[in-house]
Design a protein around this nucleic acid. Structure first.
Length: 425
RNA sequence: GGAGGGUUGGCCGAGUGGACGAUGGCGGCUGUCUUGAAAACAGUUAUACCGCAAGGUAUCGGGGGUUCGAAUCCCUCACCCUCCGCCA
């Protein structure tokens, strides 16, 4: 959520941002109009309430003096006042509900440094890192490798749960578990993150806090009976850890890393990426989340990207860092970098991480603040998150980059203690 | 799942329809005293919104209702506690 004062006072900047984002349908004008009306109602209503409060006090005094007749007259006057107040209150509620909806549907403003562009074709490749593997054979895609090795069972995944579900077996399951444990160890032991194990089912308020709701509910699974939602990413519960809290300045930065399964309907992309394990309804991910001061947030984004890159580097898999242009920024992000690993079998770049700075956009929605000075006024924190990394795609990259002519796969050095094998054959 | 009890300011805890934004205590801050500190004493100590200001409005877990007027009465939801049942 943006600051309504910013919309009110720097309207032109907000309008231009919506154009850059390709979000011209964002209800900026509506928000300005509703905000003005809200404040007018408030002024009128508060005046009437002040009158009523004073008048009601008099009734008490009159009754104590035994002047029942005067009290009755006064009561009638107050009833009339009450009716006027009620009318304004009804309108106020509607205006506030409409304003709230508008505020929740206006996207975050991009930082000035974000390149202007209409869609993903105008994203900017920042750097390409690592060495390409060389093959004296045609590298196979992971679904062939996985099924050939008996570590991936796509058919039975479909039998159990339908399309976009799969089963990992043997060293396949072990490889995934190894990646999870290893990535958590790297982030906690080398990058200073504190591990968190959060619920994967959350209340609606959490999803509003991170910006998934109200606009993007159709990509979420939900249990109607108990009114809980399955998380699409650990970002949701971990960011909401400090919802409605005021943190002390010395607590910041707070850096958390969490491993969770993630659940997404993916009905927007039906038919896309149906082959293999690239895009499923359920997948595992290690996620980093930071809570920082506004002054430090931009630098914290760079270090977040560096932390995610470390995983790619240590695995020895070539990757690139891509900066999203304005048109490809997510609803909540002010600036965002993706990490993409090269997959020689599928012959494509795989998005394995998405690192974003949300400025105070999520913090305002989730009401996460900190106190810069003891006893001082609270300010909103800045929140960031980045995958570190998303598992099925790292699995794909490992299998395809480390494959050998006979269909076996060499286990990357760093994972060997975790996998307990040097080669998957 | 069943039965009962709770939720008040930074913390503890009083308050069952009007002088209550809320007694009191603790903690915090300021001052007096002191070389300094402690103790004692005095004062002070919530947040948001509107307003140049004076001031006003709202907030006693959330929402709704009754009433001229609600921390107080009614309904509802959430959470916590106790007991029973069930369970990994």
């Amino acid at each position: 959520m943006l600051d309504i004062r910013l919309i009110r006072e720097d309207t032109q900047r907000v309008r231009q941002a919506m154009i850059d984002l390709g979000a011209m349908d964002a209800p900026v004008e509506e928000a300005i109009r509703l905000d003005a009306r809200r404040r007018q109602i408030l002024v009128d209503m508060e005046g009437l309430k002040a009158e009523r409060n004073a008048g009601s006090k008099q009734i008490g005094a009159l009754l104590r003096q035994g002047q029942t007749e005067a009290a009755t007259q006064q009561k009638e006057a107050m009833t009339a006042l009450g009716a006027r107040i009620a009318g304004l209150e009804t309108e106020l509620k509607q205006v506030e509900a409409d304003l709230n909806w508008a505020m929740l549907t206006i996207p975050n403003l991009p930082l000035p440094e974000v390149p202007i562009g209409k869609d993903d074709s105008e994203n900017v490749v920042i750097r390409i890192v690592g060495e390409w593997p060389t093959f004296d054979f045609v590298p196979r895609p992971h679904w062939e490798l996985g099924e050939g090795l008996g570590i991936l069972d796509l058919e039975r995944g479909v039998k159990l749960s339908g399309s976009r579900f799969y089963v990992l077996k043997g060293l396949g399951a072990r490889l995934q578990r190894a990646l999870i444990a290893w990535m958590l160890d790297v982030h906690t032991q080398q990058h200073g993150y504190t591990e968190v194990y959060p619920p994967v089912m959350v209340r609606e308020a959490c999803l509003v806090g991170t910006g998934n709701l109200p606009k993007f509910g159709d990509n979420l699974y939900r249990d109607i009976e108990d009114d809980l939602w399955l998380i699409p990413t650990a970002e949701v519960p971990v960011t909401n850890l400090y919802r409605d809290e005021i943190l002390e300045a010395e607590q910041l930065p707070i850096k958390h890393v969490a491993y969770t399964p993630c659940f997404r309907r993916e009905k927007m992309s039906a038919g896309k990426d149906t082959r293999g394990i690239k895009r499923g309804h359920q997948f595992d991910k290690v996620e980093m989340v930071k809570f920082v001061t506004p002054e430090s947030s931009r630098a914290e984004l760079d270090s977040l990207v560096t932390d995610a890159e470390a995983i790619c580097r240590l695995l020895g898999i070539p990757y690139r860092v891509v900066q999203m242009c304005t048109g490809d920024l997510s609803f909540v992000a002010a600036i965002k970098f993706d990490l993409e690993m090269w997959a020689p079998g599928c012959d494509e770049w795989l998005e394995v991480s998405s690192c974003s700075l949300f400025t105070d956009f999520q913090a305002r929605r989730a009401n996460i603040r900190y106190r810069p000075e003891p006893g001082g006024r609270p300010r909103y924190v800045h929140t960031l998150n980045g995958s570190g990394l998303a598992l099925p795609r790292v699995m794909i990259a490992v299998l395809e980059n480390y494959q050998q002519a006979d269909g076996s796969v060499v286990v990357p050095e760093v994972l060997r203690p975790y996998v307990g094998a040097e080669v998957i054959r």
